[in-house]
Design a binder for these strands. Structure first.
Lengths: 168, 168
DNA sequence: GCTGAAAGACTTTAAGT
DNA sequence: ACTTAAAGTCTTTCAGC
């Protein structure tokens, strides 16, 4: 399930550049990597087809659009059965406050990353969308002081690059 | 700090479309929103200048590049002082396995989202980069079964859109 | 602040290696 | 699988409103 894809040094270089700025043009990629623009186009198209590249996302600053407070909510859903967790997941995903949702091992079943206006807004969200729901057995709220996105995602051993398992 | 920006319905419409696909062309945006392409260009440039749009990111599938196992590590850093947490944060951010890092309220100071090859790789990471470090008092590892990104990030009350606090 | 049109840049195709 | 070159499309500027 979801086998790895073979990536050569050209693919890795392109992925590294595009992760820094996904709007880098094929001409720029070509100049940096040392191949023709049409080759970059081919490579990127292949990376999309093979499922390595899932899409292009806009990064917004939540604080600039009135969501200056972020938090992580740990949630226990009981009983933890498919007929309850399916609707729970869909309901949480649809909340305008939700940024990400994780189904986890451990005593807390879900972790929800939310962005809200302020503590009053957070309290409203927790009370109205979580603790008031029958399937939610427990919620623990932690505020996010600060967060960082980390360096480009590359295959293991990309320091000595190019080696990955085979597939496709 | 990080005041909200005024967004009119045109801005909101553009942001919604670009969050669905950040590569949507100005011509397409223009057709959807009902303004000229050059107006969309102006709007997007203004959203970048005002800090609402932070950048364009490539979304990759970690499983396709040999990182088929993801986990969240809760970490206590003790003593929790600036001279220790600064280097800790920089070290964790620089790990190729790190996807995101959060500084949180609560008993666990940091949450680290990592992507690794398998459980052996995860064990190596936890032992070599976390529990072996002087400043790391405790690590709790939870595996990610499944994760979801959630709908477009919009201002509070974007159902009745357009109202946000003033700035700039 | 928006429009429309022109100029320039980039993307994409296709033939050739 | 890559390259070059040409055609098509998109971006970007700017004069005018």
């Amino acid at each position: 399930m979801a086998d790895s894809v073979v990536l050569d040094p050209v693919d890795l270089h392109i992925l590294r550049l595009l992760q820094n700025d996904a709007r880098t043009t094929y001409r720029e990629l070509a100049a940096e990597v040392g191949v023709a623009p049409s080759t970059c186009l081919d490579r990127v198209a292949r990376l999309r087809r093979s499922g390595v590249i899932l899409g292009h996302r806009l990064r917004l600053d939540p604080a600039r659009i009135g969501r200056g407070l972020e938090a992580l909510l740990s949630v226990q859903v009981r009983p933890h059965r498919r007929e309850l967790i399916g609707p729970f997941v869909e309901r949480i995903r649809a909340l305008p406050e939700s940024r990400a949702l994780f189904h986890l091992t451990g005593p807390d079943d879900y972790l929800v990353h939310v962005a809200v206006a302020d503590t009053a807004d957070l309290q409203r969200l927790v009370l109205d969308e979580f603790t008031s729901q029958r399937e939610v057995a427990r919620v623990e709220t932690r505020l996010i002081f600060q967060q960082w996105e980390c360096g480009p995602l590359l295959p293991p051993a990309a320091t000595a690059p190019g080696r990955t398992e085979e597939s496709e």
